[in-house]
């Protein structure tokens, strides 16, 4: 036992919903005003970023199929080499890309409900204890009516073989639910688009993770 484990644990601060006006704090331009010089957004790449350019595009549905227009989604992913830009990633032989942080923030459009993330396809990250993980992007979803932010992962339809071996997909006992985590690759006028819709509830409810 380490000494820390002998101390009583403090309780994590309780979560509360992001509410309808989450854009003010996290995406003020979408709320309708300019205040910060540097805005966090949904374009993760610049001209020098290494990797295949992709766009993720989708909508978020409630339990009766309504398209939600007040959702905020954050994404976190490895770079094209499969390396996270964080000191905890000590995978040997992989370099951080100085032109790619791997974190984005996107809001569903107030009119169409569509969210987009312009990024690169991540490489393979080694899993826990050397296990295999297919390329994936981590997503965190908050909105009015969501009491605790929802964690999920997005996988890629053109990685079917890798997905079959993925350590996390394989712990989903209900095999038919795994498909809710696979984004469908499309070619839209020369642009690679992965369509990834999220269903909060109801038929084909997206798999969310207790991380």
């Amino acid at each position: 036992m380490t000494q820390q484990q002998m101390q009583p644990l403090m309780r994590e601060t309780a979560s509360q919903t992001a509410g309808p006006y989450v854009h003010i704090g996290l995406a003020p331009r979408q709320a309708g005003f300019e205040i910060f010089e540097n805005n966090f957004g949904s374009v993760l790449t610049n001209d020098k970023t290494k990797g295949e350019r992709i766009r993720i595009e989708g909508r978020v549905f409630d339990g009766i199929g309504t398209v939600l227009k007040d959702v905020l989604i954050e994404s976190w992913q490895a770079n094209a080499a499969g390396k996270y830009a964080h000191p905890g990633d000590r995978q040997p032989g992989k370099e951080v890309d100085p032109n790619f942080r791997g974190w984005g923030r996107s809001c569903t459009d107030f009119d169409t409900g569509i969210y987009t993330i312009d990024t690169i396809k991540p490489g393979v990250v080694t899993g826990r204890n050397g296990g295999f993980m297919a390329p994936h992007i981590n997503l965190w979803i908050v909105a009015r009516g969501i009491n605790l932010g929802l964690n999920t992962r997005m996988y890629f339809s053109d990685e079917a073989e890798a997905n079959k071996k993925d350590a996390v997909l394989n712990v989903i006992e209900w095999e038919q639910r795994r498909a809710t985590l696979v984004a469908q690759r499309e070619d839209k006028g020369g642009q690679v688009v992965y369509r990834f819709d999220i269903r909060l509830q109801g038929e084909a409810e997206t798999v969310f993770f207790d991380v």
Partner: peptide, 11 residues
């Protein structure tokens, strides 16, 4: 209508 009905998967 915005709350998942199924248990989250532990990973």
């Amino acid at each position: 209508l915005r709350s998942p009905r199924l248990a989250p998967i532990s990973l």
